[in-house]
Write a protein that binds this DNA or RNA. Structure first.
Lengths: 257, 257
DNA sequence: CGCGCCGTTGAGCCCGTTCAAAAAGTGTGG
DNA sequence: CCACACTTTTTGAACGGGCTCAACGGCGCG
């Protein structure tokens, strides 16, 4: 039933002017009239992606940037030996696909849909063009990129200096807060839809899936969390935070993440 | 003698218009006339920092941004238990200090000088103001931030999926290429000034200093590198790259890093 | 019903840690 | 120029967290 929702009923984007996702997305600073122009000239496409499929691949020419409209996705990179490292999980409203180099150069990582997902597609060139008309967008894009950098830095601390148990608890707390921040009015709910597999968690935390499994069952047995039917429940955020050595001035704990 | 240079003869910044560091810094897109205005209104200070001292600290209000003019520095974060994770090494010409949140909010990491260093200081508010006059700067800042994000992503792959030996070799190669890219005309030289301690490497790679030492002596014994008197020599880049499983489409291997 | 994906469990091993302690540099003051 | 303190590098022995490799079970789907 829940699976059906993920597979068939992915919401497709409509008019930019009435977009519910705009609150966090790149175009938040624009006024409604300006948004209409955005849609007409720069949003070249909306696209739906089936679970597990790539939105773009490492090595491809980078000509587009995206807003994730619905579903979960992730950015990842592979080592020469073929091991996967997940760099960032993407949630609805997240903007992604900007590269440090010029338009058209090779992508330095992949983006994959995790659930069924839909994205709004913009040309990478159009993005720079839009800046000429709307300076606020330039600042906003810098902010968004700096946010992503801060997220990556948090993950670096986890992978470098925290135990498996702490890494996993941290990741779950991060995603919990990020999901909940996107559902205004539900600030007190203690469960979220959680479509990841244990292997996703392993590849994000730099662990093996066996060990993620063992650690998760330990956390479940201690009633620090429950996870069934693609639903994650955290009965007591403070207790899990304590187990994770989680600091509440973590970057993603701020508005906008 | 070499130490003397690091301690006493740190170059101090002069006129922005003739700045040798501008090639890679934020203000690269500006014309010389515009640069003079930059200096007059936005560069509020130049500052020299002694080795090991903080440029800014986690938790402080973020009101400034910086160009590293001379010396090495690093960004780092500490866990609740006090372990340090180095997030990024900063080399001359690097621009840093931009945060995802508004001016004045708390810094989410620290910046420390590693050697004696000097920085150009700009007000964070002045930065956004400058954007109004110079759209190119907005794009440039986005590029710089995206570059830093890509660097962080590379490090995530290392910490998550590579062995100690590979991580260390990777880091040394990264720094080697970044340093060499800043010395036009010396593209063939196989040694660089390298002021880090083994503990810096440990804190960047998520390892203990003992194990870094053991791994480094192994690499030295195999003649993959030499490191004496704050000088790092890599006799054969390809052999070290092979030992590191280093891929040459790594982000920092592109121009601008 | 059979296949593939995902979660679960076990036993043994190894990479990197921990905790010491000593050696070698490096800067300071007399 | 030497004595002293401090930082950095080096080395050792024992431990353990997370890995490896393998097998099994459950569930959804064709």
């Amino acid at each position: 039933m829940r699976q059906k929702r993920l597979l068939d009923e992915t919401a497709m984007p409509g008019m930019c002017a009435t977009c519910p996702v705009r609150r966090l997305a790149l175009f938040e600073p624009l006024r409604t009239g300006e948004i209409t122009a955005t849609q007409r000239y720069y949003r070249i496409d909306t696209r739906s992606v089936t679970p597990g499929k790539a939105i773009y691949r490492q090595g491809e020419a980078s000509t587009e940037v995206y807003t994730l409209y619905d579903g979960w996705a992730c950015l990842s990179q592979r080592t020469v030996e073929g091991d996967r490292q997940i760099l960032e999980f993407l949630l609805p409203e997240d903007f992604f696909g900007v590269q440090p180099n010029r338009c058209g150069e090779a992508r330095i990582h992949c983006a994959h849909a995790i659930t069924a997902a839909s994205v709004c597609v913009f040309t990478c060139g159009g993005l720079w063009e839009m800046f000429r008309g709307h300076i606020d967008l330039g600042m906003r894009l810098t902010q968004i990129t700096a946010r992503d950098e801060a997220l990556a830095h948090e993950h670096l601390v986890s992978l470098g200096r925290r135990s498996a148990r702490e890494r996993i608890a941290h990741l779950l707390l991060e995603l919990f807060y990020r999901v909940r921040a996107r559902r205004p009015g539900l600030a007190r709910v203690n469960e979220i839809d959680f479509p990841l597999t244990q292997e996703h968690i392993a590849d994000a935390c730099g662990l093996t899936k066996s060990h993620v499994n063992r650690t998760l069952t330990a956390l479940k047995n201690e009633h620090l969390l429950a996870w069934r039917d693609k639903t994650l429940t955290i009965p007591d955020l403070d207790r899990l935070a304590a187990a994770a050595n989680y600091s509440h001035d973590a970057a993603f704990h701020r508005p906008g993440f």
